[in-house]
Design a binder for these strands. Structure first.
Length: 573
DNA sequence: AAAAAAT
């Protein structure tokens, strides 16, 4: 979790351990009750044609600042004008002249009755086709907030050196109370049982609250997700939706490299948006697009997405990024590598999203190769670079073992490891190929182990089901490809096994980061043989830095490799 | 070479 769990690469989930079972069978429709259903904006016409794209910014008598949207300009027909007069979207500090739709009417502690009253008010008031986005009714608290799983080494995070560079970097905070995030956020922080911010949260929250662009690097499981969700949601509450009232114009966009990670971030966002008017949505491939569209039409202030499905939605005219003031790239180095970069440029630079400088851009990852940091500057303006610990380093809460295992011995060695594993802990086994994942799962299944597997050739339903079976402990062994390497916050993963080592060190860092999160201890075992010589040097460096035991054969190999390889270091990438 | 990401 990136949050304390939070980041994505870690996500905030870290604190409360695991996901909150917010969905069934891979679909997330019908998760909340609804006041007005969809179709609230029946008279708005098509997305593009009634706004003229960017042209919508003109004629407002002033420069448009999407980060601090002009309030109450009266320019948008319908919904925004109505909301303006209803004082619905203004800062709670400045407006209390009418029922405030953005905040609970009786403050944080009010119960569901006040929500019902609010709904009645909303229904009575908007009978003219100008109904605003549906408020999110409070789902059961227990569904959203599961127990905290902060570990015994949580306090040790304070020993990690922090680097924050850039113009006028605001001071860090020591407590969530040190920065004004509003009663809703503070209440949800309490419900999430976050007591103290993690280092990345201490620094990133004030930076984001002062509306600065940010490139943040922090170890896996150190709370990155919450580090961006909390301040971004807090800004949305404070600023109100501005002109982005219509369902299809999110104020904030979070992009993630895998569908399951997008889903996890969305679940975190729902947690922090509890009892607020902010409505998070998620779109990703492999799931019913019709359901996702219907969900969007009920209102979307914060959108979590994977790139392909988002582009599809944009091309269908279902989502406009014209008023997107906040852009977050989670697992940013992955999002900007060769596979994703064109799609990111398509979304961020070649459509209607406000340009850098007007929007606020935030990037998070546990790894961030120098070359990609340079590329990332294309999307940032006067940004602050934040690094908690060395970029790309691993948590000392993870015990890393590297063992020499020939290909032919891997299976029996794996069985030995599994047999030595406690009953209640989860084991994540990484392999390099999808075929390999299928084969290994079959093997373990035949050997009588309760296991499942996940990879990109599975149906989305199967993928989500496998993850659910694993998280819930029904299948305490998960065989996975790279799809599960980044960001997923699964509490109680005690052991990560690299049945096949990856070819680059970043992948290794993210994989083993599925354990040892938020101060908990974890174990990572990697099978090494002749096929892995490419990662020898980087792996050795990581082990030494994290004060791990280094096998003498690995040291020798690294020494030999150094003398025959001409492309050491980071010439690649 | 492989994995991921739209259909």
């Amino acid at each position: 979790m990136t949050h304390l769990s939070g980041s994505s690469t870690d996500s905030p989930a870290g604190w409360d351990g695991g996901r909150s079972n917010g969905f069934v069978n891979g679909y997330h429709d019908g998760r909340d009750g609804r006041v007005n259903g969809s179709g609230a904006f029946g008279n708005r016409g098509s997305l593009r044609s009634d706004r003229g794209g960017r042209g919508g910014f003109k004629g407002r008598g002033g420069a448009y600042n999407p980060i601090q949207p002009v309030q109450n300009t009266g320019m948008n027909v319908g919904a925004s004008a109505v909301a303006g007069t209803a004082a619905g979207w203004r800062s709670p500090e400045t407006t209390r002249t009418g029922p405030n739709l953005w905040l609970p009417t009786k403050g944080w502690n009010s119960k569901c009755q006040s929500f019902a009253l609010l709904c009645l008010f909303v229904c009575a008031r908007y009978t003219d086709g100008l109904t605003p986005p549906t408020p999110t009714p409070p789902p059961p608290r227990s569904e959203l907030f599961s127990g905290s799983n902060t570990g015994i080494n949580f306090e040790k995070y304070d020993d990690i050196p922090v680097e924050a560079t850039g113009h006028n970097c605001p001071p860090h905070i020591e407590s969530f109370h040190d920065v004004a995030m509003g009663e809703i956020i503070m209440g949800n922080i309490t419900l999430s049982r976050y007591t103290r911010p993690t280092p990345v949260q201490k620094h990133a929250i004030p930076i984001i609250k002062t509306k600065r662009d940010l490139m943040a690097c922090a170890q896996t499981g150190s709370g990155k997700t919450a580090a961006f969700l909390l301040p971004v949601l807090s800004q949305i509450y404070t600023d109100g939706p501005g002109d982005a009232l219509q369902a299809q114009y999110p104020i904030s966009l979070v992009l993630a490299p895998t569908r399951e990670l997008a889903l996890q971030i969305y679940d975190e966002a729902r947690k922090f948006a509890y009892r607020s008017r902010v409505r998070p949505c998620v779109v990703y491939g492999g799931a019913d697009i019709g359901q996702q569209i219907r969900d969007l039409e009920r209102g979307c202030h914060l959108l979590v997405a994977t790139p392909g499905r988002l582009v599809d939605m944009m091309e269908r005219g279902k989502i406009g990024l014209d008023y997107c003031s906040y852009l977050v790239l989670d697992e940013a180095d992955r999002m900007l590598d060769m596979g994703f970069e064109p799609q990111i440029r398509r979304i961020v630079e070649q459509d209607t999203m406000p340009p850098k400088g007007l929007r606020q851009t935030m990037m998070f990852s546990a790894t961030f190769p120098k070359e990609i940091q340079i590329l990332a500057r294309d999307f940032l303006e006067d940004y602050i670079f934040l690094a908690v610990g060395r970029v790309g380093s691993t948590s000392e809460n993870i015990t890393q073992k590297v063992v020499w295992v020939e290909e032919s011995d891997k299976r029996s060695f794996l069985l030995d490891l599994l047999n030595a594993t406690g009953k209640d802990s989860l084991t994540l086994v990484f392999v390099e190929t999808k075929k390999g994942a299928d084969a290994l799962e079959d093997f373990l299944y035949r050997e009588g182990y309760a296991c499942t597997s996940i990879h990109g050739d599975r149906s989305q339903r199967d993928r989500e089901e496998a993850l659910h079976q694993f998280r819930s402990g029904r299948c305490p062994i998960l065989v996975a490809t790279a799809v599960a390497a980044r960001g997923l916050d699964i509490c109680n993963v005690k052991h990560v096994i690299n049945f096949d080592l990856p070819s680059d060190i970043e992948e290794y860092v993210h994989r083993i980061g599925r354990t040892g999160r938020v101060g908990n201890l974890g174990l990572a075992t990697s099978f090494f043989n002749d096929k892995n010589s490419n990662i020898t040097k980087d792996l050795l460096d990581i082990l030494v830095e994290a004060k791990q035991e280094v096998p003498s054969w690995l040291e020798s190999l690294a020494y030999e490799h150094q003398h025959k390889s001409s492309t050491r270091g980071r010439a690649k990438r």
